[in-house]
Design a protein around this nucleic acid. Structure first.
Lengths: 225, 225
DNA sequence: TTAATACTTAACAATAAGTTAACATTGGCT
DNA sequence: AGCCAATGTTAACTTATTGTTAAGTATTAA
């Protein structure tokens, strides 16, 4: 679902904050809409269907959390990204925020650079998570979002490298990946690691998932089977 | 698909990066094009049809992953090589990169030597893998990606040398390959092995696939039939 | 900080793949 | 036909590649 322009809705009762953030986000090419209270925010959201909503927690009448809950109760916004803006010393905001269904929160005063990177990270993550269908082959299933592997009924947590390796092999089941390829796609270019490193990781995967699932093609590579 | 000049499209919002990489790649004889954002990148790609596209992940508006997905959704770029540029600490870049359909990724800051070697590895790999289509003759079919041979309904796994030998003979069915040719294409020019070695491998293939499929032309060579 | 976990390495073991040597068989040749 | 160089066959041998373990580093969490 790649869209040309990402729509962001800002909901805050302070016009200064709206203006400041609006300016900074527009500069980055986002399309910005705004509302000064929760009720208007929800109405506007229904019309424009934003990709992301930024909610100030402290607002008169209907605060950010109530607004968030109201939005989440609507089918349309079940998976829309929501970021909370909170004052630094609102101690419970984190917990309650996530509880109310926020995806992230940022403390005021907002620093544009930081806010942008959080926002982009969130968009990137969600963008992929929408497309990241879990891959299931046989009784093994991987969930890239949660970094988890399911084997039958049991759930297995894998360290990063092991997960990446498994994910690579499962991305094209049956196809043989040679060492060079594995090296490049799991380890990347920054690290030059020895040959045995791959074997050790393969071994650990076999230990956790069963010996049969990864087959060695001697002199050629490994494949998931 | 042999082309005289390899075209590379660079998409990055930082002019410095473009210039730096452009300089280094041009020096190696590649033909370089560039765009400063995803949208322009896609438009340019459509026009020039590059062999390889380098995408910065962190870009305003339409980031590398969104661009990659957009490209992959077009028939024209289904198999074009794509390399991601990511900051070292972008934690999700690896996983999401696979998911978005990248062929490789390289971390910033880019070191020319390393970047070049990966790029060349990728070009080399794709060049051969594109040529390696499944070949089916009679009831025998070979799948180079999976390193498997199918005979009727049964699946046969072959060791590397046997597979290469079969692949060679099947690449031009009916044509006779003499020993010298077989030697150089399966064993390479470095290794000097005795004469009986070829026979032994031929024998093993016959054992596994049936006596009739490889015919001996005494004093001339072997052919697949 | 310490503790825990993840990752890498090195040394050695195990094994499949590849090679060779010795001998058998074949088929084109005079 | 019968010779004989080329190829077939077998099993033992050699080697390259991968498996395994444990210990050393690095990274992350507490």
């Amino acid at each position: 679902m790649s869209r040309s322009v990402i729509k962001i809705l800002l909901v805050d009762d302070e016009p200064d904050v709206i203006e400041f953030m609006s300016y900074n986000l527009k500069k980055e090419g986002y399309s910005i809409f705004s509302a000064s209270n929760g009720k208007d925010g929800i109405e506007l959201a229904k019309k424009i269907n934003p990709d992301l909503i930024v909610l100030d927690v402290m607002m008169p009448e209907m605060d950010g959390m109530a607004t968030c809950r109201a939005l989440r109760s609507l089918e349309q916004f079940k998976s829309t990204l929501i970021i909370f803006l909170t004052a630094r010393d609102e101690e419970y905001s984190q917990i309650s925020g996530f509880d109310a269904g926020a995806d992230d929160y940022v403390t005021k005063p907002v620093k544009p650079r930081i806010f942008l990177s959080r926002l982009q990270a969130l968009l990137r993550r969600s963008d992929t998570s929408k497309k990241q269908l879990n891959v299931k082959i046989g009784d093994i299933e991987i969930d890239p979002e949660k970094y988890l592997v399911y084997k039958g009924t049991e759930t297995i947590e894998l360290p990063k490298k092991e997960f990446l390796l498994l994910q690579l092999l499962m991305s094209k089941p049956g196809r043989v990946f040679n060492r060079e390829e594995i090296m490049s796609r799991v380890w990347g270019n920054e690290s030059i690691v020895g040959d045995r490193t791959i074997d050790v990781h393969i071994r650990k995967l076999r230990e956790k998932l069963g010996d049969e699932i990864i087959k060695t093609m001697k002199g050629v590579g490994y494949k998931f089977d």
